[in-house]
């Protein structure tokens, strides 16, 4: 099956003279949640920015559904939804207007939008706040708005950057359930997080980034074999990999 996301030999960063990523290659298939894991400053956010098409690769390429951003900007962007680490809301738009605007921008027809919006509002328990402005939202509610906007689009690829921060336990549960549902429908999901226990439970594969390079990637089993740590959980693997990086 064709990969939803294909990152091949990507070298990139803000400055050409000082690349942050060095030859990073990985892919996300349909029906798959991939965890992007690494210390602060490992290059997770830079990787995500390249996937979103906000940065140009110095070398290598990023394909979503077989297309690069240059080939067809509108199709590339239509195929992905982004859940940022810090919620990015428009202070002058109500919750409902955030949803409506997102649906408009992604070309979703009005009827489908209405149905999906109703469902999401109910699921994330935000029905009462549809006319509120973001200044009245808590951190968790803001994050829920971002998550609802992403699910509203219903794209082939989801990119989530630390999506759990600030969410209440019920919110985390709704989010994860929804992720699973999308995965079963055939979406690919790339998720960066520090909450390793949750990642271990929900992700199918992992990419461990360290200092701009992929140290190991694969399923839990593959990671254990590669590192020769038969009973390790993701926490142990994470520590082992970063320790190794420090000494090496």
């Amino acid at each position: 099956m064709e990969n939803v996301l294909e990152v091949s030999a990507l070298t990139g960063g803000y400055q050409r003279s000082r690349p942050v990523l060095h030859g990073v290659s990985f892919s996300v298939k349909p029906h798959e949640i991939v965890g992007l894991i690494g210390l602060n400053g490992a290059g997770k956010s830079t990787t995500i920015k390249h996937v979103l098409g906000l940065m140009e690769p110095h070398d290598g390429a990023v394909h979503i559904k077989g297309r690069t951003m240059d080939e067809d900007m509108e199709a590339y962007r239509s195929s992905l939804a982004y859940i940022p680490e810090t919620p990015l809301l428009y202070e002058e738009l109500t919750l409902w207007e955030h949803l409506e605007l997102t649906a408009m921008a992604y070309g979703i027809d009005e009827k489908t939008f209405g149905e999906r919006a109703e469902g999401l509002l109910k699921e994330f328990r935000m029905e009462k706040m549809v006319k509120w402005f973001p200044s009245h939202f808590s951190k968790g509610m803001r994050q829920k708005v971002m998550i609802m906007c992403a699910f509203l689009v219903n794209p082939d690829l989801y990119v989530a950057d630390e999506p759990f921060v600030g969410l209440d336990p019920l919110g985390i549960r709704s989010f994860l359930d929804h992720m699973k549902e999308m995965k079963e429908k055939g979406c690919g999901i790339l998720m960066s997080t520090h909450i390793l226990a949750t990642a271990e439970k929900y992700c199918d594969r992992f990419i461990l980034l360290h200092e701009g390079r992929i140290v190991v990637q694969g399923t839990m089993e593959e990671l254990r074999t590669q590192l020769d740590l038969p009973d390790a959980d993701l926490d142990d693997i994470y520590v082992a990999v970063t320790e190794e990086g420090r000494h090496g």
């Binding site: 428009y90 202070e91 002058e92 738009l93 207007e97 409506e100 605007l101 408009m104 921008a105 992604y106 070309g107 009005e110 402005f133 200044s135």
Partner: peptide
């Protein structure tokens, strides 16, 4: 930014039809 809802003008904002091309007009007008 400090926001003033000015709800009495919402009826005017409805003049922007729901269409992908109008995305930015939707934002600018609000």
């Amino acid at each position: 930014m400090s926001i003033r809802p000015r709800r009495y003008l919402n009826a005017l904002l409805q003049a922007v039809p729901y269409r992908q091309k109008n995305t930015y007009l939707y934002m600018f007008s609000r």
